[in-house]
Design a protein around this nucleic acid. Structure first.
Lengths: 159, 159
DNA sequence: CCGATTAGACAACATTGTTGTCCATCACAA
DNA sequence: TTGTGATGGACAACAATGTTGTCTAATCGG
Protein backbone atom coordinates (compact mmCIF):
# COMPACT_ATOMS: atom_id res chain seq x y z
CA UNK A 1 0.00 0.00 0.00
CA UNK A 2 1.14 3.52 0.64
CA UNK A 3 4.14 2.37 2.58
CA UNK A 4 6.61 3.02 -0.16
CA UNK A 5 10.30 3.07 0.49
CA UNK A 6 10.48 6.73 -0.40
CA UNK A 7 7.84 7.48 2.14
CA UNK A 8 9.82 5.71 4.81
CA UNK A 9 12.78 7.90 4.02
CA UNK A 10 10.67 11.01 4.15
CA UNK A 11 9.24 9.94 7.47
CA UNK A 12 12.67 9.80 8.99
CA UNK A 13 13.66 13.07 7.45
CA UNK A 14 10.52 14.60 8.84
CA UNK A 15 11.22 13.24 12.28
CA UNK A 16 14.73 14.50 12.27
CA UNK A 17 13.82 17.89 10.98
CA UNK A 18 10.98 18.30 13.37
CA UNK A 19 13.28 17.71 16.31
CA UNK A 20 16.15 19.75 15.03
CA UNK A 21 14.07 22.67 13.90
CA UNK A 22 12.29 22.83 17.22
CA UNK A 23 15.59 22.64 19.04
CA UNK A 24 17.14 25.38 16.95
CA UNK A 25 14.22 27.67 17.52
CA UNK A 26 14.22 27.02 21.22
CA UNK A 27 17.95 27.59 21.37
CA UNK A 28 17.44 30.92 19.64
CA UNK A 29 14.77 31.78 22.16
CA UNK A 30 17.21 31.17 24.92
CA UNK A 31 19.68 33.60 23.50
CA UNK A 32 21.77 31.40 21.24
CA UNK A 33 20.52 32.64 17.95
CA UNK A 34 23.79 32.23 16.16
CA UNK A 35 24.14 28.50 16.47
CA UNK A 36 22.92 25.94 14.04
CA UNK A 37 22.81 22.24 14.66
CA UNK A 38 26.00 22.03 12.67
CA UNK A 39 27.74 24.15 15.23
CA UNK A 40 26.27 22.18 18.04
CA UNK A 41 27.53 18.94 16.60
CA UNK A 42 30.92 20.37 15.85
CA UNK A 43 31.06 21.67 19.38
CA UNK A 44 30.23 18.23 20.68
CA UNK A 45 33.02 16.76 18.64
CA UNK A 46 35.44 19.31 20.05
CA UNK A 47 34.26 18.62 23.56
CA UNK A 48 34.70 14.94 22.85
CA UNK A 49 38.31 15.43 22.05
CA UNK A 50 38.63 16.76 18.54
CA UNK A 51 41.06 19.43 19.58
CA UNK A 52 42.37 20.47 16.20
CA UNK A 53 40.78 21.45 12.95
CA UNK A 54 42.16 18.48 11.11
CA UNK A 55 40.95 16.10 13.75
CA UNK A 56 37.55 17.70 13.74
CA UNK A 57 37.42 17.30 10.01
CA UNK A 58 38.17 13.61 10.33
CA UNK A 59 35.51 13.08 12.93
CA UNK A 60 32.87 14.92 10.99
CA UNK A 61 33.95 13.42 7.70
CA UNK A 62 34.62 16.72 6.05
CA UNK A 63 37.82 18.21 4.76
CA UNK A 64 40.09 19.96 7.16
CA UNK A 65 39.45 23.18 5.29
CA UNK A 66 35.75 22.94 5.92
CA UNK A 67 36.39 22.08 9.52
CA UNK A 68 38.77 24.98 9.85
CA UNK A 69 36.12 27.34 8.64
CA UNK A 70 33.59 25.97 11.06
CA UNK A 71 36.10 26.42 13.82
CA UNK A 72 36.73 29.97 12.70
CA UNK A 73 33.04 30.70 12.91
CA UNK A 74 32.75 29.11 16.31
CA UNK A 75 35.69 31.11 17.49
CA UNK A 76 34.24 34.35 16.16
CA UNK A 77 31.07 33.70 18.04
CA UNK A 78 32.84 32.81 21.20
CA UNK A 79 32.03 29.14 21.47
CA UNK A 80 35.57 27.88 21.20
CA UNK A 81 38.99 29.21 21.96
CA UNK A 82 42.09 28.52 19.93
CA UNK A 83 45.46 28.54 21.55
CA UNK A 84 48.82 27.56 20.13
CA UNK A 85 49.77 24.07 21.11
CA UNK A 86 52.93 24.34 23.21
CA UNK A 87 53.98 20.86 22.22
CA UNK A 88 53.47 21.19 18.49
CA UNK A 89 53.98 24.51 16.82
CA UNK A 90 51.89 23.50 13.83
CA UNK A 91 48.74 22.98 15.79
CA UNK A 92 46.21 25.29 17.28
CA UNK A 93 44.52 23.64 20.18
CA UNK A 94 40.80 24.07 20.17
CA UNK A 95 38.82 24.18 23.34
CA UNK A 96 35.19 24.68 24.07
CA UNK A 97 34.62 27.94 25.88
CA UNK A 98 32.28 28.50 28.78
CA UNK A 99 29.72 29.84 26.43
CA UNK A 100 30.26 26.79 24.27
CA UNK A 101 29.60 24.48 27.18
CA UNK A 102 26.55 26.48 28.05
CA UNK A 103 25.03 26.06 24.63
CA UNK A 104 25.84 22.39 24.68
CA UNK A 105 24.04 21.98 27.95
CA UNK A 106 21.05 23.90 26.72
CA UNK A 107 21.02 21.79 23.60
CA UNK A 108 21.06 18.58 25.59
CA UNK A 109 18.22 19.75 27.68
CA UNK A 110 16.14 20.87 24.77
CA UNK A 111 16.58 17.63 22.90
CA UNK A 112 15.73 15.68 25.98
CA UNK A 113 12.62 17.76 26.46
CA UNK A 114 11.59 17.11 22.92
CA UNK A 115 12.15 13.43 23.40
CA UNK A 116 10.00 13.55 26.48
CA UNK A 117 7.25 15.19 24.47
CA UNK A 118 7.37 12.39 21.99
CA UNK A 119 7.35 9.93 24.82
CA UNK A 120 4.17 11.45 26.09
CA UNK A 121 2.60 11.24 22.70
CA UNK A 122 3.22 7.60 21.97
CA UNK A 123 4.23 6.19 25.33
CA UNK A 124 7.57 5.16 26.75
CA UNK A 125 7.46 1.60 25.49
CA UNK A 126 6.74 2.62 21.96
CA UNK A 127 9.40 5.26 21.94
CA UNK A 128 11.87 2.75 23.25
CA UNK A 129 10.77 0.40 20.53
CA UNK A 130 11.25 3.09 17.92
CA UNK A 131 14.73 3.82 19.15
CA UNK A 132 15.57 0.20 19.35
CA UNK A 133 14.50 -0.44 15.78
CA UNK A 134 16.32 2.55 14.45
CA UNK A 135 19.42 1.58 16.32
CA UNK A 136 19.24 -1.87 14.89
CA UNK A 137 18.87 -0.52 11.39
CA UNK A 138 21.37 2.26 11.35
CA UNK A 139 23.79 1.22 14.04
CA UNK A 140 24.28 2.44 17.55
CA UNK A 141 26.60 5.24 16.56
CA UNK A 142 25.07 7.22 13.78
CA UNK A 143 27.27 10.09 14.77
CA UNK A 144 28.99 9.89 11.47
CA UNK A 145 27.12 12.66 9.81
CA UNK A 146 28.87 14.11 6.86
CA UNK A 147 25.97 16.38 6.51
CA UNK A 148 26.51 19.58 4.63
CA UNK A 149 24.42 22.58 4.10
CA UNK A 150 21.02 22.48 5.47
CA UNK A 151 21.86 21.66 9.03
CA UNK A 152 23.43 25.02 9.20
CA UNK A 153 20.67 26.94 7.64
CA UNK A 154 18.61 29.60 9.21
CA UNK A 155 15.18 28.79 10.41
CA UNK A 156 12.35 31.23 10.21
CA UNK A 157 12.63 32.34 13.75
CA UNK A 158 11.56 35.95 13.36
CA UNK A 159 8.56 37.57 11.67
CA UNK B 1 20.13 6.10 30.03
CA UNK B 2 21.99 6.79 26.83
CA UNK B 3 18.83 7.41 24.92
CA UNK B 4 19.21 11.12 24.77
CA UNK B 5 17.01 13.24 22.65
CA UNK B 6 19.90 14.25 20.47
CA UNK B 7 20.67 10.65 19.84
CA UNK B 8 17.14 10.03 18.72
CA UNK B 9 17.49 12.82 16.20
CA UNK B 10 20.75 11.42 14.96
CA UNK B 11 19.21 8.01 14.59
CA UNK B 12 16.58 9.35 12.27
CA UNK B 13 19.10 11.34 10.33
CA UNK B 14 21.19 8.24 10.00
CA UNK B 15 18.25 6.25 8.77
CA UNK B 16 17.29 8.82 6.23
CA UNK B 17 20.76 9.27 4.96
CA UNK B 18 21.43 5.61 4.72
CA UNK B 19 18.40 5.15 2.50
CA UNK B 20 18.94 8.22 0.40
CA UNK B 21 22.63 7.68 -0.08
CA UNK B 22 22.08 4.11 -1.13
CA UNK B 23 19.36 5.19 -3.51
CA UNK B 24 21.50 7.89 -5.04
CA UNK B 25 24.34 5.51 -5.60
CA UNK B 26 22.11 2.90 -7.12
CA UNK B 27 20.51 5.49 -9.36
CA UNK B 28 23.96 6.49 -10.53
CA UNK B 29 24.73 2.85 -11.23
CA UNK B 30 21.71 2.65 -13.42
CA UNK B 31 22.83 5.52 -15.53
CA UNK B 32 21.31 8.46 -13.75
CA UNK B 33 24.42 9.90 -12.27
CA UNK B 34 23.32 13.48 -12.58
CA UNK B 35 20.34 13.37 -10.29
CA UNK B 36 20.30 14.07 -6.63
CA UNK B 37 17.41 13.46 -4.30
CA UNK B 38 16.62 17.13 -4.62
CA UNK B 39 16.01 16.68 -8.30
CA UNK B 40 13.97 13.61 -7.72
CA UNK B 41 11.73 15.43 -5.29
CA UNK B 42 11.41 18.44 -7.52
CA UNK B 43 10.53 16.13 -10.36
CA UNK B 44 7.86 14.55 -8.25
CA UNK B 45 6.42 17.93 -7.48
CA UNK B 46 6.35 18.79 -11.15
CA UNK B 47 4.72 15.49 -11.98
CA UNK B 48 2.23 16.22 -9.24
CA UNK B 49 1.19 19.40 -10.89
CA UNK B 50 3.70 22.10 -10.12
CA UNK B 51 3.90 23.20 -13.72
CA UNK B 52 5.68 26.50 -13.30
CA UNK B 53 8.79 27.63 -11.53
CA UNK B 54 6.92 29.86 -9.14
CA UNK B 55 4.47 27.12 -8.29
CA UNK B 56 7.29 24.67 -7.74
CA UNK B 57 8.90 27.15 -5.43
CA UNK B 58 5.76 27.42 -3.39
CA UNK B 59 5.37 23.68 -3.12
CA UNK B 60 8.93 23.12 -2.09
CA UNK B 61 8.98 26.13 0.20
CA UNK B 62 11.82 27.82 -1.55
CA UNK B 63 11.97 31.06 -3.45
CA UNK B 64 10.95 31.10 -7.05
CA UNK B 65 14.49 31.97 -7.98
CA UNK B 66 15.81 28.84 -6.37
CA UNK B 67 13.08 26.81 -8.00
CA UNK B 68 13.84 28.37 -11.35
CA UNK B 69 17.42 27.34 -11.05
CA UNK B 70 16.49 23.80 -10.17
CA UNK B 71 14.20 23.73 -13.16
CA UNK B 72 16.97 25.05 -15.35
CA UNK B 73 19.21 22.24 -14.19
CA UNK B 74 16.55 19.65 -14.74
CA UNK B 75 15.94 21.01 -18.20
CA UNK B 76 19.61 20.98 -19.06
CA UNK B 77 19.80 17.37 -18.08
CA UNK B 78 16.73 16.44 -19.96
CA UNK B 79 14.39 15.57 -17.15
CA UNK B 80 11.84 18.27 -17.81
CA UNK B 81 10.71 20.24 -20.81
CA UNK B 82 9.71 23.87 -20.75
CA UNK B 83 7.26 25.21 -23.26
CA UNK B 84 5.64 28.60 -23.45
CA UNK B 85 2.19 28.59 -21.98
CA UNK B 86 -0.22 29.45 -24.80
CA UNK B 87 -2.70 30.87 -22.33
CA UNK B 88 -0.30 33.06 -20.39
CA UNK B 89 2.65 34.56 -22.13
CA UNK B 90 4.47 35.12 -18.87
CA UNK B 91 4.60 31.48 -17.95
CA UNK B 92 6.71 28.62 -19.12
CA UNK B 93 4.89 25.37 -18.65
CA UNK B 94 7.05 22.68 -17.14
CA UNK B 95 6.51 19.06 -17.93
CA UNK B 96 8.33 15.93 -16.91
CA UNK B 97 10.04 14.36 -19.89
CA UNK B 98 10.19 10.67 -20.68
CA UNK B 99 13.60 10.51 -19.15
CA UNK B 100 12.19 12.29 -16.15
CA UNK B 101 9.49 9.72 -15.74
CA UNK B 102 12.02 6.99 -16.17
CA UNK B 103 14.17 8.26 -13.35
CA UNK B 104 11.13 8.66 -11.15
CA UNK B 105 10.18 5.06 -11.75
CA UNK B 106 13.67 3.84 -11.07
CA UNK B 107 13.71 5.87 -7.91
CA UNK B 108 10.49 4.36 -6.71
CA UNK B 109 11.77 0.89 -7.34
CA UNK B 110 15.05 1.49 -5.62
CA UNK B 111 13.46 2.90 -2.52
CA UNK B 112 11.06 0.02 -2.40
CA UNK B 113 13.94 -2.41 -2.70
CA UNK B 114 15.72 -0.70 0.15
CA UNK B 115 12.63 -0.87 2.24
CA UNK B 116 12.39 -4.56 1.49
CA UNK B 117 15.94 -5.01 2.68
CA UNK B 118 15.08 -3.36 5.93
CA UNK B 119 12.03 -5.52 6.17
CA UNK B 120 14.20 -8.58 5.90
CA UNK B 121 16.48 -7.31 8.58
CA UNK B 122 13.95 -6.61 11.26
CA UNK B 123 10.85 -8.34 10.00
CA UNK B 124 7.68 -7.04 8.41
CA UNK B 125 5.82 -6.47 11.65
CA UNK B 126 8.59 -4.43 13.16
CA UNK B 127 9.05 -2.36 10.07
CA UNK B 128 5.35 -1.69 9.98
CA UNK B 129 5.54 -0.72 13.60
CA UNK B 130 8.40 1.63 12.88
CA UNK B 131 6.50 3.28 10.08
CA UNK B 132 3.41 3.50 12.14
CA UNK B 133 5.20 5.20 15.01
CA UNK B 134 6.96 7.63 12.75
CA UNK B 135 3.77 8.45 10.97
CA UNK B 136 2.09 9.10 14.26
CA UNK B 137 4.87 11.38 15.34
CA UNK B 138 5.54 13.38 12.24
CA UNK B 139 2.29 13.10 10.40
CA UNK B 140 1.28 11.07 7.41
CA UNK B 141 2.53 13.59 4.89
CA UNK B 142 6.01 14.66 5.75
CA UNK B 143 6.46 15.67 2.16
CA UNK B 144 6.94 19.23 3.18
CA UNK B 145 10.64 19.29 2.98
CA UNK B 146 12.12 22.71 2.67
CA UNK B 147 15.42 21.02 2.70
CA UNK B 148 18.28 22.90 1.18
CA UNK B 149 21.76 21.96 0.40
CA UNK B 150 22.85 18.57 1.32
CA UNK B 151 20.20 16.58 -0.41
CA UNK B 152 21.70 17.77 -3.60
CA UNK B 153 25.23 16.95 -2.77
CA UNK B 154 27.44 14.53 -4.52
CA UNK B 155 28.05 11.22 -2.95
CA UNK B 156 31.36 9.51 -3.14
CA UNK B 157 30.44 7.16 -5.87
CA UNK B 158 33.81 6.70 -7.45
CA UNK B 159 37.12 5.66 -5.94
C1' DC C 1 -7.56 52.13 -19.37
C1' DC C 2 -4.78 51.93 -15.26
C1' DG C 3 -2.87 50.16 -11.05
C1' DA C 4 -1.75 45.89 -8.65
C1' DT C 5 -0.22 41.32 -8.94
C1' DT C 6 2.33 37.61 -11.00
C1' DA C 7 5.99 35.01 -13.76
C1' DG C 8 10.42 34.92 -15.01
C1' DA C 9 15.13 36.56 -15.22
C1' DC C 10 19.44 38.79 -13.65
C1' DA C 11 22.67 40.21 -10.26
C1' DA C 12 24.89 40.27 -5.83
C1' DC C 13 25.82 37.80 -1.91
C1' DA C 14 25.76 34.13 2.10
C1' DT C 15 26.75 29.39 3.52
C1' DT C 16 29.01 25.17 3.29
C1' DG C 17 31.50 22.03 0.83
C1' DT C 18 35.52 20.56 -2.39
C1' DT C 19 40.33 20.51 -4.66
C1' DG C 20 44.67 22.17 -5.20
C1' DT C 21 48.74 24.40 -3.50
C1' DC C 22 52.14 25.98 -0.12
C1' DC C 23 54.76 26.44 3.95
C1' DA C 24 56.25 25.29 8.52
C1' DT C 25 56.87 21.65 11.64
C1' DC C 26 57.32 17.13 13.33
C1' DA C 27 58.74 12.09 13.22
C1' DC C 28 61.66 8.75 11.94
C1' DA C 29 65.18 6.41 9.93
C1' DA C 30 69.57 6.11 7.46
C1' DT D 1 72.59 14.84 12.06
C1' DT D 2 70.17 15.27 8.27
C1' DG D 3 66.90 14.15 4.64
C1' DT D 4 62.32 12.52 3.44
C1' DG D 5 57.70 12.00 4.19
C1' DA D 6 53.52 13.00 6.83
C1' DT D 7 50.74 16.43 9.20
C1' DG D 8 48.54 20.97 10.57
C1' DG D 9 47.00 25.15 8.98
C1' DA D 10 46.06 28.66 5.64
C1' DC D 11 44.85 30.71 1.09
C1' DA D 12 42.64 30.68 -3.29
C1' DA D 13 39.41 29.22 -6.73
C1' DC D 14 35.24 27.08 -7.58
C1' DA D 15 30.64 24.34 -7.09
C1' DA D 16 25.98 23.86 -5.30
C1' DT D 17 21.94 25.99 -3.06
C1' DG D 18 19.79 29.29 -0.89
C1' DT D 19 18.37 34.39 -0.13
C1' DT D 20 17.13 39.44 -1.29
C1' DG D 21 16.52 42.96 -4.34
C1' DT D 22 15.39 44.84 -8.78
C1' DC D 23 13.28 44.87 -13.40
C1' DT D 24 10.34 43.83 -17.33
C1' DA D 25 6.48 41.94 -19.39
C1' DA D 26 1.97 40.14 -19.09
C1' DT D 27 -2.39 39.43 -16.80
C1' DC D 28 -6.22 40.71 -13.92
C1' DG D 29 -9.71 43.70 -11.68
C1' DG D 30 -12.38 47.46 -11.43
Amino acid sequence: MSRSGANLALLMLGGFRSLVDAATIELANRGYDDVRPLHDFALRAVAAGADSASELGRRMSVTKQAAARTVATLEERGYVVRTPDPADARRMRIEVSDRGFAVLQEGEGIFDDLRTQWQQRIGPEKLAELESLLTELVGPQPVRFDTPGWLARDLGEST
